[in-house]
């Protein structure tokens, strides 16, 4: 059985039309399955957290990080993709 690998994508920045669409389009293009999405808008700040399955992804997570950096810059947003292990290890005993 293939071990599933998950990553967390976070998007932080000024709210505008089409953020979710652009980020999820990138996920689809790279073969990542979106498992969970939560988003909220605090004052004008848009905060979205996505849990994605990257087991079947066509690119390594380090390449995805570069792609999302580029996308983030073009939209003036901060987009991070990080392997879920970092959050599990920091916040769970």
């Amino acid at each position: 059985m293939i071990k599933t690998e998950k990553a967390v994508i976070t998007v932080i920045g000024k709210d505008m039309v089409g953020i979710l669409a652009k980020v999820s389009a990138m996920c689809a293009e790279k073969g990542m399955n979106v498992l969970e999405v939560t988003q909220s808008i605090l004052q004008d700040m848009f905060v979205m957290v996505m849990l994605v399955d990257i087991t079947g992804s066509s690119s390594a997570i380090s390449e995805l990080a570069d792609e999302f950096d580029t996308l983030g810059e073009s939209l003036h947003l901060k987009i991070h993709i990080m392997h879920e292990d970092i959050f599990n290890s920091m916040h769970k005993i």
């Binding site: 967390v8 849990l51 990080m82 970092i86 920091m90 916040h91």
Partner: peptide, 15 residues
Amino acid sequence: MNTNEILETINMIDN
């Protein structure tokens, strides 16, 4: 997974 914890980690790294 807890959204606040995720954002806490990102804030620690970014800021």
